[in-house]
Design a protein around this nucleic acid. Structure first.
Lengths: 341, 341
DNA sequence: TCCCTAAATGTTAGCGCTCACATTCACTGT
DNA sequence: ACAGTGAATGTGAGCGCTAACATTTAGGGA
C-alpha cells in the first residue's frame, strides 16, 4: 500500500536498473564508469537492463556528488563575425570529443560590466573552465580578476603577463609581416595600413607586424588609418584615399575592410592591382571571388579552436601548457601586383 | 574532534549561509527563490550573509530535486555560415534573458546518425528543449522520432505535418517571390535560378517561390541550375553561363553564389546589370560592397532566433504556439536593372 | 586441509538543495 | 479572555548518484 503502485512519470534510476539486472546499484555505477572488477557476464546483464529500461544517468545527481559539471563555458562577441564563429565551432567539436558540454554566452559589449555578467553567469552554472573569444583590451582587463577563480583561456595575441589568464591565438603579428613583406617584395615603398579598432588586441598586433616588417626593410611606415572591421568603413576609407591620391599598396586589417576598399577603388577608377595593391586578413568565404580576387592572410580558425580547448583542459588538469601561437599563411591572389612600372 | 577543523575546500552551502544569518536553510532557499513570506529584515540578513560568504547556489543539487536543468540545447550546422551563426547568437541572447543556459552541439553531417548523436548528447545532458539550426531534409526526418520525447523546434520553412516537431523560419518562399517579382517588374522575361542544395528545405522553398511568382506572371521558368551555397560554385556556374550565353536575369539562392556569379560575369565581360541582373539572398556583411553592390533579400536572423526561442519556451510550457514565419525584405542595390533596351 | 589473498559485489553515508509539512507567533474578532 | 487566522519560519525526507568501506566468493600455496 505504498506509492509503488502509482504510475511512474519518473524516469528510471540506477536502482531500477539494478533491480532488473539483479545486482546492486553500485555495480550499475561501476559498469557505467568503466570500473574494473565487473564480471563480463554481470556487465552484460546490466547493459541489457539499461537498454530495456531506456535508462539514462542523471547528470545532476552525478555532478552533485562529484562536484564536477563537465561543462565548459565559451564567451563570444555578440556578432556573427567569421573568425569567432569558426573558432566557436572548432572549440565545440573538440570539447565534445573530450567529453565536455559546451555552454555559450555572448557579450553585450566589451565593457567590464558585460564581461563580469558573462563570467558570473558561467560561475553560477559551475562551469569547469572558460574560453573567451573576444580579443579586446577591455575584455582582457575585466577577465584578469577571475583568472584566479577558474581556468580561463582567452584568444589574444599578447600573453597576459604574470597572471593565470592563459592566451592562445593565431600569430597576428606574423600574419601582418607576411602581408607587408609580400607588398615590399613586389616593390612597393609606401604601404598604408587600414587598421582595425585598436582596442582589439589582434588589431594592434597587425599594426605592430606591419610596422616591424617595414622597419626591417628600412622603409618608413605609410599612413595608418583607423577603422572598424566593416566593409562600410573600408569603403569610406577607400573613397578618401581616392580623393586624396591613393598609395600604391594598402594592407587592410581584415577582408571586409579590403572589400570596401576594392569597391571604392573600382568606383573611383583606381585599378587594382595596377594602381594599388590590396591585401586583406582572414580569408573569409568568397574572398577568392572579390573583384579582383583578394590576396589575404589565412587564419586557421579550426586549429585555433582546437588549441584553445587543449590549453584549457591542460590548465584545468594542471598539466604543462603550450601557448605557442599558430602560424597564419599568406594566400596570394589577384589584388596584389608590382604596380605600374 | 570531527573534521570540522579541517580547512574547507568545499564552497559554502546553503546551510553555511543559514548559520551566518541565524536562520534555517529553508529561509535562505526562500530568499533565493523570491518566495513571499520572508520579513524584509530577515531577507536583508540572508542577503548579507550570502555576500559575506560569496555563496553561490549549487545548481546540480537544485536540478536534482527540481528535475529541471534550466538548459536548452541548440544544434547547428558545423560550418560558420552567416545565417546559422547569426541565429545562434540571437537564440542565446533570448535564452539567457529567459533564464536558460544554452548548450551547443554542431552537426558532423546531415545523416541520421549525426543527428541522433547530437540529440542523444543533449538528452544525456537533460536539456529541457532543443532548437535545431540545420534546415535540411535528412535532419528533419531524423528529428521526428525525438519530437515526442522532448520539445523540439527546427528552423524550416515547411511545417512538419502532424508531428510535435515545431518549425519556425523566415518566409523563404516569400523572399524568393520578392526577388523574382523585382526582376519581372524590371522587364526581364527569362529569370534563371541558381538553386542551393535541394536537400535544404530553404533551398527548395526558394525554388518554389521563384516558380510561383513566375507562374503568376505567366512567364515560363528559366533554367534551374543546381548548386551548393559556395562562391566557388557560383563562379563555376557563372562561367558556364557566360560560355553558353547568359540570360538577362539570375536569381541566386544566396549571396555567396551571387558573388561567384558576379566574379565570372566580370571576368567574361558580361556587364551587371546592363547585360544581366543578379539578385542574391541573405544580405551578408559586405553585400553592399560587391561589384556591383548586390540586390538581395534580407533575412532578419536576429528576429528568427528570438522567435525560435519563444516558440520553444511556449512548447515547453504547453502554451499556444505562433508559428507565423518572418517576412524578409528586398534590398535593391546596383546589381539589378532593366537591362539593355 | 586450511588460510590467505584478490576479485567481485554489496552496504552505507552523504553531496546541497527543494518540497511538504509542522510549528511558532502576533494579531483579529467575538 | 480565547480560539481562529495567516504570516513567518523551521524540520525532515529524499532527489539519484559516487566514494569509502564491508562483505562474499573463488583460487592457490603451505
Amino acid at each position: 500500500m505504498t506509492t509503488e503502485y502509482d504510475a511512474r512519470p519518473r524516469p528510471p534510476a540506477m536502482s531500477d536498473v539494478a533491480r532488473v539486472a539483479g545486482v546492486s546499484h553500485q555495480t550499475v555505477s561501476r559498469v557505467l564508469n568503466a570500473h574494473t572488477s565487473v564480471r563480463p557476464e554481470t556487465r552484460a546483464r546490466v547493459l541489457e537492463a539499461i537498454a530495456e529500461l531506456g535508462y539514462r544517468r542523471n547528470i545532476a545527481a552525478r555532478a552533485l556528488v562529484t562536484r564536477r559539471s563537465g561543462t565548459i563555458g565559451v564567451v563570444t562577441v555578440g556578432l556573427p563575425y567569421f573568425g569567432p564563429s569558426s573558432t566557436l565551432i572548432a572549440v565545440e567539436e573538440a570539447a565534445r570529443a573530450a567529453g565536455y558540454f559546451v555552454s555559450i554566452a555572448t557579450l553585450a559589449g566589451t565593457d567590464a560590466s558585460s564581461v563580469d555578467k558573462a563570467v558570473e553567469y558561467f560561475l553560477g552554472q559551475a562551469v569547469e573552465g572558460i574560453i573567451v573569444i573576444a580579443p579586446q583590451d577591455d575584455v582582457r582587463d575585466a577577465l584578469v580578476p577571475f583568472a584566479s577563480q577558474i581556468p580561463l583561456v582567452m584568444i589574444a595575441s599578447e600573453p597576459s603577463p604574470g597572471f593565470s589568464l592563459h592566451t592562445m591565438s593565431v600569430d597576428q603579428e606574423l600574419g601582418a609581416r607576411l602581408a607587408t613583406r609580400h607588398l615590399l617584395d613586389l616593390g612597393h615603398r609606401e604601404v598604408v595600413h587600414v587598421a582595425g579598432p585598436l582596442d582589439w588586441i589582434d588589431a594592434r598586433a597587425r599594426v605592430a607586424g606591419w610596422r616591424a616588417e617595414l622597419a626591417v626593410a628600412g622603409v618608413a611606415p605609410g599612413a595608418q588609418i583607423a577603422a572598424d572591421w566593416s566593409a562600410e568603413r573600408g569603403y569610406a576609407v577607400g573613397r578618401s584615399l581616392v580623393r586624396e591620391g591613393a598609395p600604391t599598396a594598402v594592407f587592410a586589417a581584415n577582408d571586409q575592410l579590403a572589400l570596401g576598399l576594392l569597391h571604392a577603388f573600382a568606383e573611383g577608377g583606381v585599378a587594382v592591382p595596377q594602381d594599388v595593391s590590396v591585401v586583406g586578413f582572414d580569408d573569409i568565404g568568397g574572398a577568392a571571388h572579390f573583384h579582383p580576387p583578394l590576396t589575404t592572410v589565412r587564419q586557421e580558425f579550426a586549429d585555433l579552436g582546437r588549441r584553445c580547448l587543449e590549453l584549457l583542459v591542460a590548465a584545468m588538469e594542471g598539466l604543462p601548457l603550450d601557448p605557442t601561437p599558430i602560424p597564419p599563411r599568406l594566400v596570394v591572389r589577384a589584388s596584389t601586383g608590382p604596380g605600374r612600372a
